[in-house]
């Protein structure tokens, strides 16, 4: 599938400068991580790789990632002040530089979030023009462009869960555009990632959360 789908992946995003890959893309990666966490994280550990690590200050990558973690969109005028706002809302932020790794895309970030007892992790890269790819969620390898609303469903690997989830989506007449399932091992922790044409209603999401084997549902939305 093409990473860039249509006109507004090329003309756009409408954004606060100065860099679509290092600012807008970074904000989207931060916001995606925040979606998986489901709330304002208490602590964020951000590891930068490649060009992100080398130019993050000049490109405002640090500011943009934190803005995303605060749930700001790419055009939010508060982006330049995000580090200060994070301090005010009590979100602790730590930046680290990753070791150079030629196998990674030059604009890659790993974000670890903690919220109470819970921890979340997202690794993704910014591929140009504000477009992003999410490569890992909680150490499960995935491939999400976040161009469409994407359901992320941690669950227990057991018979019938996938069918139950897709049955609910089908009941609400929601079309699936892409789907991935991964697990740590038989009967253990698993992750379902479902690309949708449209954002599912709150009702549909609640039905999925109510399934016994499902831990949680989060939605990564394009912004």
């Amino acid at each position: 599938m093409s990473s860039f789908r249509h006109s507004f992946d090329i003309i756009g995003p409408v954004m606060i400068g100065p860099s679509s890959s290092h600012t807008a893309g970074a904000a989207r990666l931060g916001r995606s991580a925040r979606s998986i966490c489901g709330a304002q994280p208490e602590r964020a550990e951000i590891m930068l790789f490649g060009s992100f690590a080398k130019t993050y200050k000049g490109h405002g990558t640090d500011v943009a990632l934190v803005a995303g973690l605060l749930d700001f969109e790419t055009h939010d005028s508060r982006i330049p002040r995000s580090l200060k706002i994070a301090e005010e809302v009590g979100m602790e932020v730590l930046f680290r530089m990753g070791k150079p790794n030629p196998d990674l895309h030059p604009n890659t970030v790993r974000i670890r979030l903690t919220q109470g007892e819970r921890a979340f992790e997202l690794m993704g890269c910014s591929i140009g023009g504000g477009a992003i790819e999410i490569l890992e969620i909680n150490q499960f390898k995935v491939k999400i462009t976040a161009a469409y609303p994407t359901l992320v469903i941690p669950h227990v690997d057991q018979f019938g869960v996938v069918a139950a989830v897709t049955a609910i989506l089908s009941k609400y007449q929601l079309n699936i555009s892409a789907m991935e399932v991964a697990r740590r091992g038989r009967g253990r922790e698993a992750l379902m990632v479902i690309g949708m044409d449209e954002r599912p209603s709150q009702e549909a999401v609640q039905e999925i959360v109510a399934l016994e084997a499902v831990h949680d549902v989060s939605i990564i939305t394009p912004s």
Binding site: I10, I11, V14, G17, P18, S19, S20, G129
Partner: peptide
């Protein structure tokens, strides 16, 4: 505020 065309 700008529009990335295709980048910022």
């Amino acid at each position: 505020l700008v529009v990335a065309t295709p980048t910022a």
